[in-house]
Every structure is written in structure tokens, then in C-alpha cells.
């Protein structure tokens, strides 16, 4: 479903992705863990076309998203890219809801504007989605009136409204107060078990990653240092860096 072939990316002297080769199967749930600055989020941002790779090929569902040769001009916002991008949805650490729109308008916006759905149909669907994420009572509230956890659940509903084949979750609980994390994780767990969406999660919630993932990838220094089934990675990692990282995060 997703493939990164020899993808390279640097931020000045910081080499965040080193010739990355990374493949995700349809319906697979993959968690990406690792220390901050290790390039985890960059993988999601390249998929969402928020960043461009310096080099390499990225495809989604068989369609090319990026094909960059080093030194060549990078072509952004091509028609092909826009079409491919429709298959992807993303939930952000900072929610990024549209603050001037109510919860339901946030969810209705893209189906109306991008899919050309009628207002009534979009409203029905948005209402259904907001019910699913437990916000049926808050349809007309604007984001500033909602808690962080509620905002993040609206953001999940908003991304789901486009029926993406691939969902990207970028540290979606990192900005939340601890007591609000559970509700958001419940929603994601439901999605993971009830849909055949391909899911890619960058997360610091190790127990959650272990529970819902088919595969866990440990990232450090721009490379995947180790990957495998969650039980293997969390209980008995082979790589020294993985062991040290897990020890550090699980002790807290």
C-alpha cells in the first residue's frame, strides 16, 4: 500500500532519512517509535506531501506520490500528486481544526468541497462520524469550546470523512492532558479493529502501540534500526539502541 524506495531527506546538517526503504501492506497497522528527531514524523509528512524528499520514490496504493532525483527540480502539487493524496488522511499532534467552524462544519468541509457531496449528505455523514467518536452532543460547538481530547476526536472524524485508504497519526496524544488520552486512543483502537484502513502511527504510547500494531518499527538516526511484531520488539528486542530507548521511555 505504501512504499518508500531509497528516500533521502536532510534538514541542513541533520540527515533525517538515510536511503529509507520502507513498505507497508494494505490494512497493515504500523507503529513507528524512536527518539525525537529521528525522522519518524518526516515519514508521515512526506506521505501527506507537507515535505518533499530530497531523493527517492514514494508510492501509495500503486500510484506515484514522489519521484525525486537529486539535483532535479522538485515538482510540487502535480495533478497526479493531488489524486494520490486523496487516498491519505492525517491527524496532527496539534489537531489543527479550523477554529472558526463548528465541529460538524469542520467534518463537512472537505466532503463538500473536494468530493462534491451535497450539504445534506455531508451533514448526515459528519453527524454519524461525530457520534462514533463520542461527540454527538457537541456538533455545533467551535473548537475553542472543546477540550483537547474532544478536538482531537473531531480531527479524527474530519479525516475519516474523506474515507482514506491510509491514515496517518502524528503523535496525536502528545499535546493532550493525560486524563484525555484514553478517549482518543479508544477511538483509534476502534478504527484499527473495525476497518481495513492502512494505519501508520508515530507514537510515544508504547503500550497502545504494542496492543494495536501488526508491526513496530524502531527509528533512530534516519534509519529503521529494527522492526518486527510488537511482542518481539517490546519484549525481546535484538538491537541495542531499541533496548536502550525502550528502557528509557518505559521507566517513566
Amino acid at each position: 500500500m505504501i512504499s518508500f524506495d531509497d528516500v533521502d531527506k536532510s534538514w541542513g546538517p541533520n540527515h533525517v532519512l538515510k536511503k529509507l526503504n520502507f513498505h507497508v501492506k494494505p490494512a497493515e497497522k504500523v507503529s513507528i517509535i524512536g527518539p525525537s528527531g529521528s525522522g519518524k514524523t518526516t515519514i508521515l509528512r512526506i506521505l501527506m506531501t507537507l515535505e518533499n524528499p530530497d531523493e527517492g520514490i514514494v508510492t501509495v496504493d500503486g500510484d506515484e506520490l514522489w519521484n525525486v532525483e537529486r539535483g532535479r527540480r522538485i515538482r510540487r502539487e502535480t495533478t497526479q500528486m493531488k489524486l494520490t493524496r486523496r487516498k491519505i488522511g492525517m491527524v496532527f499532534q496539534q489537531f489543527n481544526l479550523f477554529p472558526h467552524l463548528s465541529a460538524i462544519q469542520n467534518v463537512m468541509e472537505a466532503p463538500i468541497q473536494v468530493l462534491g457531496m451535497s450539504k445534506n449528505e455531508a451533514h448526515e455523514r459528519a453527524k454519524g462520524l461525530l457520534d462514533t467518536v463520542g461527540l454527538g452532543e457537541h456538533l455545533d460547538h467551535k473548537p475553542p469550546k472543546l477540550s483537547g481530547g474532544q478536538q482531537q476526536r473531531v480531527a479524527i472524524a474530519r479525516a475519516m470523512a474523506m474515507r482514506p485508504k491510509v491514515m496517518l497519526f502524528d503523535e496525536v496524544t502528545s499535546a493532550l492532558d493525560p486524563e484525555l488520552v484514553g478517549d482518543v486512543l479508544d477511538v483509534i483502537r476502534d478504527l484499527a479493529t473495525s476497518t481495513d484502513m492502512t494505519m501508520l502511527l508515530v507514537t510515544h504510547e508504547m503500550r497502545f502501540a504494542e496492543e494495536i500494531s501488526d508491526r513496530v518499527v524502531m527509528f533512530d538516526g534516519g534509519v529503521a534500526v529494527e522492526q518486527g511484531p510488537p511482542q518481539k520488539i517490546f519484549q525481546d528486542p535484538d538491537n541495542e539502541r531499541t533496548r536502550r530507548f525502550l528502557k528509557a521511555v518505559l521507566e517513566h
Binding site: 488522511g89 496532527f92 472537505a110
Partner: peptide, 14 residues
């Protein structure tokens, strides 16, 4: 905020 542009891109808004 930059996040507003990014959300709009992620939703594919024209």
C-alpha cells in the same frame, strides 16, 4: 498558524 495550511492540504482542499 502553519497547521491551518497543513490541515487544508491534508484534506485536499482546492
Amino acid at each position: 498558524p502553519q497547521g491551518q495550511w497543513e490541515a487544508a492540504t491534508a484534506l485536499n482542499l482546492p
